[in-house]
């Protein structure tokens, strides 16, 4: 695990996809063949998001190879894998955050229910209101706690009256488990909170727009164990109303919070299964090698 975290630190801030792990190739695993198809059960009935043959390119560099996966309603899907395996890239293509990178290109079928995400007619503003995102580093706006949470609803005109907005802010903060800690200082700057509180504030900000899917990109990597535990608890509660896809480096975290786990390796989706199956009887040798800590 230590190695995993170290690698995580090294890789953070860099472009995962452009730097496949050289170390891995030097290890005695060269005979391992990538499976023709993802092993396990990547598909579910009546999914929230249906993703087929997704390829992501950075210029000429292919970061994601033919990934097919379903994300079911109200379930938590954990995306795990060694640094640079493309899980963050994949996650960011689910609400088109990759659009901001000029050289990034996404192909394949990506559907949110029956809507094609990359349809030219699809509006990114609407998409991002439906598929929210929580980032690796807590990034509250340098505004008050209230304004942080109210930003999304204001942006989309979700509340016309002051009291409606107040209500949205309160429920969002309550859902994020932050209300009791900040109710007396809603107008203090959000940047003055502790790291864990900031991340919960970011979650409150995301769910204030009532998205259908929440994408989380290593939400706990910058937090201490206590703050992490709080966020994990929160993720559990959020499943009641939201569908969640979470990228994580901590296998314990994946085991604790997710219903299904997807293992990525060098841009390929190797195995998807119930979390329990992945961690107790992995089907593919690469998955097994990773979860038993043979490489990180």
């Amino acid at each position: 695990m230590d190695t995993a975290e170290k690698l995580d630190k090294n890789a953070s801030g860099r472009n995962h996809a452009e730097e496949p792990m050289i170390d891995l190739e030097e290890q005695p695993m060269q005979e391992t063949r990538y499976p023709e198809h993802t092993v396990g059960t990547p598909f579910v009935d009546d999914p929230k998001m249906r993703l087929r043959d997704v390829d992501v390119f950075y210029g000429d560099n292919q970061a994601i190879h033919k990934v097919s996966l379903d994300i079911g309603k109200n379930e938590v899907v954990a995306l795990i894998g060694p640094s640079g395996c493309g899980k963050s890239t994949f996650l960011r293509s689910l609400n088109r955050m990759n659009d901001t990178i000029d050289i990034c290109r996404v192909t394949g079928e990506l559907f949110l229910e029956d809507q094609d995400l990359y349809d030219p007619k699809m509006d990114v503003v609407e998409l991002r209101a439906r598929v929210g995102m929580v980032f690796q580093k807590p990034n509250p706006f340098p505004k008050s706690i209230y304004d942080n949470v109210a930003y999304g609803p204001r942006l989309h005109g979700l509340a016309n009256k002051k009291y409606e907005l107040d209500e949205i802010v309160e429920t969002s903060l309550r859902k994020a488990g932050l209300w009791d800690e900040v109710k007396d200082r809603l107008h203090a700057p959000g940047t003055g909170l502790s790291g864990g509180q900031q991340q919960r504030l970011c979650i409150a900000r995301t769910i204030a727009v009532s998205p259908e899917v929440v994408l989380m990109d290593e939400p706990c990597s910058a937090l201490d164990p206590i703050a992490t535990a709080k966020i994990e608890e929160l993720i559990d509660e959020l499943t009641e109303s939201y569908t969640i896809a979470i990228v994580t480096h901590s296998m314990q975290q994946a085991a604790r919070v997710s219903n299904r786990t997807a293992y990525f390796h060098l841009g390929r989706l190797i195995e998807v299964n119930d979390t329990e199956t992945v961690f107790t009887k992995p089907e593919h040798e690469l998955t097994e090698a990773y979860i038993t800590g043979r490489f990180g």
Binding site: T100, V125, A129, F135, N139, F141, Y151, L155, R205, T206
Partner: peptide, 23 residues
Amino acid sequence: VPPSIREAAMGLGASRMQVVLHH
């Protein structure tokens, strides 16, 4: 201006102009 602020606003569905004007 840290890129994380831009990402946060964009992730909430702000257009590029709104990101510029608001943040």
